[in-house]
C-alpha cells in the first residue's frame, strides 16, 4: 500500500509538469495585456510598451517558460504583476476561506444527500422518492448564483439572521466564522446535494435488489441495519467516486459563490487574476487546484480499500 501511495505521489510530478506547460502556453497564446490594464485608460501606447518591457512580457516564450519552471522547481510561484506580492502569500491569504467553504459544503452535502438518497431508494416509487428526485432536479437546474441571491435576500435582507457577504476567520470566533459561511455553503452545496442524492439512490436501488439483502431481511434484520450496515457500505464505492469528482464541481462553483458572497477565496483570486491577466497568479492557482485534484483522487482510491476489502493495490 505504501509503495502504491509513493508511486501515485511521484506520478503527480509529470502530471503537474504537463499542467504547467499547458497553463503557461494557454496564457501565452490568450489575448490580453496586463501592461495595458496597469497603465490605465489614459496611458499612451508608448507607456504601455515600457511597462510591458519592465515586466519582461516582451521576452520570448521559451525564456519566460524556462525561468518560471525553474522558480517553480525551487518552490517559488513568482510575484503578482499587479500587487507586487508573492503569489504564495496571496494564495495563503485566500486558502482558508475557500477550504472552509468547501469543507462545510462537503460535510453539509454528505449529511443531507446520502440519507436522502438512501431513503428515496428504500421508499422507491413513493411520494418520498418523487420528492427527493424533484429536489435533485431542482438542485441541478438552478444556477448557484440564483440560489445565492435568493438565500441572501430571504435570510439576510428580509429576516436579518445572517450577513449578506464577507468572511470572518475562524480565529475570530466560531459563530462569526460560521454565520458567514452558512448561506454560501447551502448555495454551493445545492448542486452537490442533488448529485450525491441521485447517485446514492441509484446505487442503493441496485444493491437493495441483491440476494444478500433478501437474506438479511429473511433473517429478520431491521430496516436501519439493512440500509446502513449492509446496503450503504456496499454502495459506498460509487458514491465516494462521485464525491471525489464533485470536488472539481465545487472548485468551479466556489468561483461563483465567492463572488456572490464576497468571500476572499481562491475562486475570486482566480477570476480577478484572469480578468487582469495576472499571469503568475493564474499559473499558481491553477497548479494548486490541479495538485489538490490529484490528491483528492488518490484519497478516493485509497478509500475504496476501506469500503471494499477485496480491492488491493
Amino acid at each position: 500500500m505504501l509503495a502504491y501511495i509513493a508511486r501515485r505521489v511521484l506520478a503527480t510530478i509529470p502530471v503537474m509538469l504537463i499542467v504547467a506547460f499547458f497553463v503557461f502556453s494557454l496564457l501565452y497564446l490568450a489575448p490580453g495585456d496586463p501592461a495595458a490594464v496597469i497603465a490605465g485608460d489614459q496611458a499612451t501606447p508608448q507607456d504601455v510598451e515600457r511597462i510591458r518591457a519592465s515586466l519582461g512580457l516582451d521576452r520570448p516564450f521559451v525564456v519566460r517558460f524556462t525561468e518560471w519552471l525553474w522558480r517553480i522547481v525551487q518552490g517559488d510561484l513568482g510575484v503578482s504583476i499587479f500587487t507586487n506580492l508573492p503569489v504564495s502569500h496571496m494564495i495563503a491569504q485566500r486558502i482558508e476561506p475557500t477550504t472552509s467553504l468547501m469543507l462545510i459544503t462537503i460535510v453539509l452535502a454528505i449529511c443531507i444527500a446520502v440519507p436522502m438518497g438512501v431513503v428515496a431508494a428504500w421508499k422507491a416509487g413513493s411520494w418520498i422518492d418523487r420528492a427527493v428526485m424533484a429536489f435533485a432536479v431542482f438542485g441541478f437546474s438552478v444556477p448557484v448564483f440564483v440560489t445565492g441571491y435568493v438565500l441572501a435576500y430571504i435570510f439576510a435582507l428580509q429576516l436579518d439572521w445572517l450577513p449578506v457577504q464577507g468572511y470572518t476567520p475562524l480565529s475570530e470566533g466560531f459563530w462569526p466564522f460560521l454565520e458567514n459561511l452558512i448561506l454560501p455553503a447551502i448555495a454551493l452545496g445545492s448542486i452537490y446535494i442533488a448529485l450525491i442524492a441521485r447517485i446514492t439512490r441509484a446505487t442503493m436501488l441496485e444493491v437493495l435488489a441483491q440476494d444478500y439483502i433478501r437474506t438479511a431481511k429473511a433473517k429478520g434484520l431491521g430496516s436501519r441495519g439493512i440500509l446502513f450496515l449492509h446496503a450503504l457500505k456496499n454502495a459506498a464505492v460509487p458514491i465516494s467516486t462521485v464525491i471525489g469528482i464533485g470536488i472539481a464541481l465545487l472548485i468551479g462553483g466556489a468561483v461563483v459563490t465567492e463572488s456572490v458572497f464576497a468571500i476572499p477565496g481562491l475562486g475570486r483570486l482566480t477570476v480577478d487574476a484572469i480578468l487582469r491577466r495576472d499571469y503568475p497568479v493564474i499559473q499558481g492557482v491553477v497548479l494548486l487546484f490541479s495538485f489538490v485534484y490529484v490528491l483528492v483522487n488518490l484519497a478516493i482510491d485509497l478509500l475504496y480499500t476501506v469500503f471494499d476489502p477485496r480491492i488491493r493495490y
Binding site: A156, D160, Q165
Partner: peptide, 11 residues
Amino acid sequence: ATAAGALQNGE
C-alpha cells in the same frame, strides 16, 4: 447586487 445588499444590511 451583493454590495447593495451589504449597504442595506448595514454591513
